[in-house]
């Protein structure tokens, strides 16, 4: 049962990194006949300090904003040589690289219908540069640019809906996945790779440094995000929902309370409306996708 992982140890991710778990599992499914593209971010930084790499598959990084365009170029290069081994191209990028700065490039990749699987590991902020808020940072979460002080309660607006954005582009395979459900994650990576044309997978990957919790709780928090309804596990083929993971909903507090980025919501009654809005978000997801 010994597995030789295609994501090697000795990488420099913080202890308990959710993204590192995700990448190891993704590579188990892609196998070695894959070229990975990453934008700038923690994943790029901890896997590739100068003169080193923890990738056991070909991997390329160029800039923060252009991973999907680089992936398109890699695929075009393979195709121009007839791609005799049927090598697949997979991009793996953070939320900043996906929801914000790489959005235009990703939109182009979707529009061109390039046969690329794009996976976003969402840790809900720009972690590599010190926890700045991104458009994936959820309502009420404190970051260095969505501060908690006085009447400020962290992020003032909801996170962007990346699944809806991918679906609006007519992406034929769109799914969410969790590092607390690895069989499902692997199944979706396989489907995303086999699907002709673009595919998009969104994964929530907790970050103990940015969210403020003990490293050992990473998988447990990923699980709670799903069980509360805050991170629904859903799957769409050609625009139609083909699966949604059923849950027995637990209170959102079980997910929020262990995290420092939400502590203020429990210390001060004046933030009750924010908590209410988070509870409503979970309820809305449960209704929208028929989770319970």
């Amino acid at each position: 049962m010994e597995v030789k992982e295609l994501h090697a140890p000795g990488h420099r991710a913080c202890p308990g990194c959710g993204c590192a778990i995700a990448v190891k599992i993704i590579l188990r499914e892609t196998g070695p006949n894959t070229i990975i593209v990453s934008p700038t971010g923690c994943l790029e930084t901890f896997t590739s300090p100068i003169r080193s790499s923890s990738w056991e598959v070909p991997w390329i990084h160029s800039l923060f904003e252009n991973a999907p365009a680089i992936a398109t170029g890699v695929l075009a290069g393979l195709n121009s040589q007839g791609n005799p081994n049927g090598t697949k191209v997979v991009a793996i990028g953070g939320d900043g690289g996906t929801y914000d700065i790489g959005m235009g490039s990703l939109s182009g990749m979707f529009e061109r219908k390039d046969d690329i699987l794009y996976i976003c590991y969402d840790n809900e902020a720009y972690m590599n540069t010190g926890i700045q808020g991104s458009s994936a940072t959820p309502l009420g979460a404190g970051t260095t640019t969505t501060p908690v002080t006085g009447d400020s309660f962290g992020k003032m607006v909801e996170k962007k809906d990346m699944v809806a954005i991918a679906l609006a582009h007519g992406v034929p395979y769109v799914a969410t996945a969790s590092i607390a459900n690895l069989a499902d994650l692997k199944k979706k990576v396989r489907k995303g790779m086999d699907n002709p044309g673009p595919a998009f997978i969104l994964m929530l990957t907790p970050c103990n440094v940015g969210w403020g919790y003990e490293p050992e709780e990473t998988v447990e928090l990923a699980r709670k995000a799903v069980e509360t309804g805050l991170f629904p596990i859903v799957e769409f083929e050609n625009g139609n929902m083909v699966s949604a993971l059923k849950i027995r909903p637990v209170p959102v507090e079980e997910y929020l309370k262990p995290q420092k980025r939400y502590q203020h919501l429990f210390k001060n009654d004046k933030f009750e409306d924010v908590l209410k809005a988070i509870r409503k978000k979970a309820e809305d997801n449960i209704k929208k996708f028929g989770l319970a």
């Binding site: 000795g10 080193s52 790499s53």
Partner: peptide
């Protein structure tokens, strides 16, 4: 650089 070069680092 070489694949899996990170394995030299004793984390």
């Amino acid at each position: 650089c070489k694949a899996g070069e990170s394995k030299k680092l004793e984390t």
